[in-house]
Design a protein around this nucleic acid. Sequence first.
RNA 1: GGGCGAUUAGCUCAGUUGGUUAGAGUGCUUCGUUUACACCGAAGAUGUCGGGGGUUCAAAUCCCUCAUCGCCCACCA
Length: 710
Amino acid sequence: MHKKFLKPYEASQESLIYDEWEKSGYFNPDNLNGKTNYCIVMPPPNANGRLHSGHGTDFTLKDILIRFHRMMGYKTLLVPGSDHAGFETQGEYEKELKKQGRSRFGMKDKDLYKEIFDFVMSHKHVMENDIKKLGISCDWSRNKFTLDKDVISTSCDTFIKMYNDGFIYRGKKCIHWNPKFQTSLSDIETKFKDEKGKFYYFKYGPFTIGTARPETKFADKYIIVHPDDKRYKQYKHKQKFTVEWINGPIEATLLKDETADMEMGSGAMTITPWHSQVDFELACKYDLPVEQIIDWDGKLLPVAGEFAGLKISVAREKIVEKLKTKGLLERIDENYEHAVRVCDRTNIVIEPQIKSQWFVKMDKLSKRTLDSLDNKEYKILTKTHEKIFRHWMSNPIDWNISRQIIWGIQIPAWFKNKDTDKEEIKISKEIQKDGWVQDTDTFDTWFSSGHWPLVTLGYPDSKDMEFYPTQVMETGADLIFKWIPRMIIFGLYLKKEAPFKDIYLHGMTQDAKGVKMSKSKGNGLSPLDLADEFGTDATRMSFVVATPPGMNTILTKDKVRAYKKFSNKIWNISRFVLENIEGENFENKKVSSLKDKELLSNLDEEVSFVTNHIKKYRMDLAAERLYHYVWHEVADKILEDSKSIFRNGKQEEKDSRKQTLYTILSTSLKLLHPFTPFITEIIWKELPDGYMKDDKLLMISKWPEHEENK
RNA sequence: GGGCGAUUAGCUCAGUUGGUUAGAGUGCUUCGUUUACACCGAAGAUGUCGGGGGUUCAAAUCCCUCAUCGCCCACCA
């Protein structure tokens, strides 16, 4: 009797195995004998966060592919890494600062960067332990962080190369400016606040225009009405008018555009492109001049005439007063409710301003990406996603890569007389003296993470570049137009080759109500909690089964619980088989019974099915098939049948069956290993040496032989 | 506003290119403890495959339409 197997299965035994795998060195391809490379790069999770169920699905699928190919004899590499997660982490750290009664405003950028860096480094191991807990067989000796020196250096090199090749230019964009703290803010650093205010109606030539911000209107020269608005039918698009305005007569032009809201006020509005996102877009559409009215401190510029230098809050009433005197004020709506954009943390009202930002020209790069797809240099596995991808890439707009945060890679651009007519630019990674000031903006996170397959493999000259291009990029479907195109673009641009051969996108993980799991909704199921409660193997199974490529999956505890029972089943099958083959020597015996030959032939079919489906990225179907084979065939039928043979059969029948059971068990363990690595490795230790046990570690034992196209 | 997808047993979902009697898990009913396992086994009940129309010898599967839900992107659509 096997003493150890008298105990029931407990998932807690899993924790001992990962160390053993890691110490064996076989996560590192340098220690594998295979000739053909098989490499997958893991999308980097937030270094400062925990893994969520999306990562669970993500990493489990990759690990299945890696473990399968390792057993198939490939030289496999799964590269781990972590992301600095710009916005999110800076926000987290600001909360931390708040607890200490401090604020990022007033801090030097460099000091803040250093503090966040140390903060993240001290938390990174938590997320990494999460990956280990899920049993992911990645090579930790190649671990990467998105702010490692070489990543920064490579991203900057690409920026410089693209600038010199004419792919990068400086263009204007409307940003959120905090005038008190003299900084621009990202979208998520701002929020809307409902406010009750006044809405003014002024005479503007033959029109009545409505506005909540009279102080911005000095240089407004364009009136917008809806093309279908019957009130303005008699006027023509681009018709000119001379109108009396705040500081005397000006020439105004009428534009008919659908942006105008007929329901709002009089249906006519004037635009102030420098201080409004929507107006700026209109100005770009019609190629209108844009003029700054309010300076960076929130005071009026000389264009305001007698009001120049006044704070906008003071100026407003005075301007209304003047217009009233001139007889241009029609009426004031006192109860105007609207949402004002304010700084998320300081509640300071945001002043939209136009600032120059860096853009990447996308037309040629996108076209090249599509050409490469047409030439089948890489494949997108699901047709739906290929359609979305093609559509997106066929209509590229230029990519704004400037971000107004500190926690990122600072753009290697230097200025003299920035944002003036005399602006001078120098692009360089080196520190510049003589009055040159570096751009305070950082790269959009996708700019640096677009280099991920390159930098994780040590681009440009590391030996690891032999793993480039990688085999497959497997990630959440939401990244089809964020990350995937960027990686392909940079791969093609720098290395003349797409960074992966296949693109496999899994869906989003949803809760029981079909809502996407996310931190903000608080409906997530932590894969770590699930692993604690039901075991990692069960959790992995639940991530895989019923998760076909591209489809959303719903994760519930009931599902995981079902696979915990499955783990128990595997354990007890093994217990039964091991107890019955105890002390047998299989070397010279053959399977003699016809029934047993049939069982082994059925087993071959399982091997073929599982193998071929993993190759086709249908891990979901492979896992489901294994589940049914192991439970309802092996346990329910074969084991039950064996009991009567062992009780009443002839010696020859018994021997034949024992041999058959051992073959079925060892083969099943191999087939199951990529899906449920822990329990299979634990049981593998108990198999008698020799015969089917070709290596001490199941992880690197040989995948069962199979027929190719069954 | 635009795009994409889903709708199959009480619940959560499979169903690969159309092809016998539509399948799993979970839940439910009855029975059962014999060489692993009660985290078990055996047997069973449950479905107008969202509604309507079309193509076909044949539709859960292909086409059209309506309804409901979800996801993504919002100067790209």
